[in-house]
Structure formats: structure tokens, C-alpha cells
């Protein structure tokens, strides 16, 4: 008994003495708030989803309408993310390495999709690409329809993904040591080769991270997309909209399963992004 008591007092005595005060209060507040606002509601979702039989899950998953929406949401997001990867790298390159009049203004504008409410983006893009819109009227004679088609979904997804790639790649490009390029040049490399063999590998992990972030955001996007999408089941309906539709029809089950699927994929993505970041850091600090 006394031995156990000794161990216990030893354990209590060895509790870390925190030098900076406030641990109890801040952790308490953080955990309480986190639980109330985030954890408990999410638990409600997962408990409900877990309460359904695998048969129910399967039935919902193989529904052609559901499959079509998943294809559109994830597929469209992937395409948009890759487009953003290419152009985002270009924008980051131009902003970091060149100086031109208005550069700072352009740099500030990049964050617009971040600050602009999604509904505003949604109606604006629709107005722009509708047959009578500024861009719509230009491309319609060419036979390209953007508004109310899957292409419109992708355009909206590109819009909201712009800052993710640019802002992730910019700091890496900015910190890139000019001496490495100079060394490559003295060794006989052309600018394009230097870009391909020296700079791109260094920027690669950041680029990948940015693309992943843009992808994750585009998959779940609602407000910017539903106005321009057309929302025809099986063709131009995104998964978040399908969830809302199911809710409006009181199909809580269906909505929950869909949401759980999206969450699981998001979580895996987040995990992947975090691991990517860790890998990037380890590589750089080698």
C-alpha cells in the first residue's frame, strides 16, 4: 500500500511544473469550445452514419445520381486543381521574380477568392459566362458552353482555388537561393534546364501541397458553384448540392452517408497534406 502511495506521490510530484502560467485556463477553454462547436456536432454525424447497415451504405453509394455527383465533384476539383497548379506557379513566379508596374496590387488581388463571399462569386461568374455575359457571348459562337454545364463547375472551382497554389508556392520561390541558379548557369545549363532540373524539384513539394489544398477546397465548394452549375441530376450536380437536396426531402440518412463519405475523403486528404508537409520539411533540412 505504501509502495503504491509512494509511486502515486512520486507521480504527482513529477507532474510537469509549467513555467508560463495559464495552461489550465487556456486548455480548458480551448477543449470546451472545441467540443461544443466542433466535436459534438461531428460526433452526431458519425454516430448516425455508423448506425446504418452496410447494405444501406451500399445502396446509397451505387445510386447513379450519387455516383455522377461524386464524379463531378472530385473529378472537376482535380482538373481545377491541376489548372491552378500550372497557372498558380506561373503567377507566383511572375510575382516573386519579376518587377513590373502594379506588381503589389496584383499580389493583393490574388487573395480575392479568399475574401469574397462564395454566393457573390457564384452569381458573378454566372453573369459572366451566361450566353449574354461578357465572356459567354464571346465563346458561344465558337460552340463552347460554360454556364449551366460541368465546364462551368470547373471554372468556378478554378476561381476559388487560385490563392491556394500561389500563396503556398510564393514563399518557397522567394526563399530560393539565387546562387543555386548561378551555379547551374556557370555549369552550362540553359534557363529552361535550370528551371526544370534545379528550381522545379525544389518547389515541387510546395506546389503539390498547394494543389492538394485547392483540390480539398474545390471538392466541398457550394456557393460559388451552384449558380453556374445548372444542377441537373446526373450531369451537372455536385455532391454538396445533392446533400442539401436530400436534406430538403428529409432524407437525413442519405444526406448523412454522403456527408460521411466526403468527410472521410477530406480527412484522408488532410492527413496526406500534413504528411507531405512533414516530408517537405525533412527533405529541406537534410
Amino acid at each position: 500500500m505504501s509502495a503504491a502511495g509512494g509511486v502515486l506521490t512520486g507521480w504527482i510530484a513529477r507532474r510537469p511544473l509549467r513555467v508560463i502560467p495559464g495552461f489550465g485556463a487556456t486548455m480548458g477553454l480551448t477543449l470546451t469550445y472545441l467540443s461544443l462547436i466542433v466535436l459534438i456536432p461531428l460526433a452526431a454525424l458519425f454516430l448516425r452514419a455508423a448506425g446504418m447497415s452496410p447494405a444501406e451504405w451500399w445502396a446509397i453509394l451505387v445510386d447513379p445520381r450519387v455516383l455522377a455527383s461524386l464524379r463531378l465533384s472530385f473529378g472537376g476539383a482535380l482538373i481545377a486543381a491541376i489548372v491552378n497548379g500550372i497557372f498558380g506557379l506561373l503567377v507566383a513566379w511572375v510575382l516573386v521574380r519579376y518587377d513590373f508596374p502594379g506588381r503589389k496590387l496584383v499580389d493583393a488581388i490574388v487573395d480575392l477568392p479568399f475574401a469574397l463571399p462564395t454566393a457573390v462569386a457564384g452569381v458573378a461568374l454566372t453573369a459572366l459566362y451566361a450566353p449574354r455575359g461578357w465572356i459567354g457571348s464571346l465563346i458561344e459562337p465558337l460552340g463552347i458552353k460554360v454556364a449551366f454545364t460541368p465546364l462551368g463547375v470547373i471554372v468556378a472551382m478554378i476561381f476559388i482555388g487560385v490563392p491556394f497554389v500561389v500563396r503556398t508556392v510564393e514563399p518557397v520561390l522567394a526563399d530560393f537561393d539565387a546562387e543555386l541558379e548561378e551555379a547551374a548557369a556557370t555549369l552550362g545549363s540553359t534557363p529552361f534546364e535550370t528551371f526544370r532540373l534545379v528550381i522545379l524539384p525544389a518547389v515541387g513539394p510546395a506546389l503539390l501541397t498547394g494543389i492538394s489544398l485547392a483540390f480539398a477546397r474545390a471538392v466541398g465548394e457550394y456557393g460559388s458553384v451552384i449558380f453556374i452549375a445548372g444542377n441537373m441530376p446526373g450531369i451537372s450536380e455536385i455532391t454538396p448540392l445533392l446533400i442539401v437536396t436530400k436534406l430538403e426531402q428529409y432524407d437525413y440518412t442519405g444526406a448523412t452517408v454522403l456527408a460521411a463519405i466526403m468527410l472521410i475523403i477530406s480527412f484522408l486528404l488532410l492527413l496526406g497534406i500534413n504528411l507531405l508537409q512533414k516530408w517537405r520539411r525533412r527533405r529541406v533540412e537534410a
Binding site: P41, G220, E221, A255, A259, M262, S266
Partner: peptide, 11 residues
């Protein structure tokens, strides 16, 4: 990283 629709759904 959660879709806004899901954020509403949980409530």
C-alpha cells in the same frame, strides 16, 4: 477543410 454544407448538416 470541411464542406460548408456539411458544416450546416451537422447542426
Amino acid at each position: 477543410s470541411v464542406s460548408p454544407v456539411i458544416s450546416g448538416l451537422v447542426y
